Amino acid sequence: MPLAAFPKCYLSMLMEGEMRHEEWFDVASEIDVDGVEFYWGITPDDDPEELDRLRSAAADRGLSIPMMCYSPDFTHPDPDVRREEVEREKRAIEATARLGGSYCRVLSGQRRPEVSREEGLSWVSDCIEELIPYAADREVTLVLENHYKDDYWEHPEFAQQKEEFLDLLDRIEESPWFGVNYDPSNAIIADDDPIELLEAVADRVVTCHASDRYLEGGTIEDLREMEAEGGQGYADILQHGVVGEGMIDYDAVFSILADAGFDGWISIEDGYDAEKGKEHLDRSAQFLRGKMAEYGLP
């Protein structure tokens, strides 16, 4: 099973130009991963030659670029805005393919108070179903994540909770070019049981975010109050930690994945502390490699 790393702890540096892509690739090449997951905010999608150069730079370090972390917002009440969001996702799919990737994330959108459950589910499923053939033509699989909240959104994910997430999945016809990107710690933030969610979607999981969470200086109830107030980004009390050192039962996760025959990419998503980024990513990678071996995952 291939293992990737997402530069969560370095994102602000990469986006602000304080860290070059190659420096991030250098870090990843020194830990036990096979690839790096890309983030749309650091993707030069309007420059094909630069995308080719980045693909080669990663390959020179023994790394592939299998996944693209993208955040479409398909729950906007304005149909013209939703149309723009579909077109932007197409650009993300194209950039993913150019980088040599096989998986591009798709989300539902923000949980806007004025959008009803039925409206949101209808709009989102229509957008995703339109995108699947486009992705298939480029040999890219769209992966729907049980997501919490994009760093630049005002509201949490529309399909954050298990009930809405499963309902959305049921509305989208099964396809080899569409699946689930499962993130166990996001289920906890949604007040769902991550193991129950995984059991419900195991046959459709094609990629995973290996993340672990902890709350610092607050409770789940405090988080719910902060979400109700709105505001861009994550609440300060919500932290990513080293994988295997937080709230997730990874033995249960790997047992279910093994039983389902999962053989896709797992991408490490940990930490905000750039000073400890490499150390934490290395600890996460060692933990995950151990679990892969323990549960017989290739």
Rank of each mutant, 00 (worst) to 15 (best):
E130D: 13
E130G: 02
P77T: 10
R138E: 02
A252H: 01
Y134N: 04
S71Q: 08
L238S: 12
E216G: 01
R171G: 07
T141V: 11
D78R: 11
A135L: 00
S29I: 01
Y295R: 07
R283M: 04
I268A: 07
W265T: 07
I188W: 13
S102G: 15
L121F: 06
S71W: 15
G100V: 06
P44C: 02
P113Y: 12
S102Q: 12
R105W: 09
Y134I: 03
V253L: 04
S185F: 06
M226A: 14
A159E: 01
R98P: 00
P72Q: 09
G233K: 04
T219F: 12
V201E: 07
N181F: 03
D60F: 00
G246E: 01
D263M: 03
S175V: 05
I65Y: 05
E87F: 06
T207P: 09
D137A: 15
G218N: 07
L281D: 06
Y152E: 10
F165V: 12
S116E: 03
D26E: 15
E294Q: 14
S56V: 12
A59M: 08
S175A: 04
E245N: 04
D73I: 10
E94Y: 07
Y250G: 05
G296V: 02
S284P: 03
A190L: 11
G101C: 11
V243A: 04
T219R: 05
R112H: 02
G17R: 11
D52V: 14
P156L: 08
D259E: 15
S125V: 07
L142Y: 08
K8W: 11
H209R: 04
M68H: 06
D126A: 15
L197G: 03
P2I: 04
I248D: 00
P298N: 08
G100T: 12
Q232K: 15
A159P: 10
G290F: 01
K149I: 05
C104H: 03
V36F: 01
L131Q: 01
I132A: 00
E50A: 11
S29R: 03
E227D: 15
F25V: 03
W40M: 11
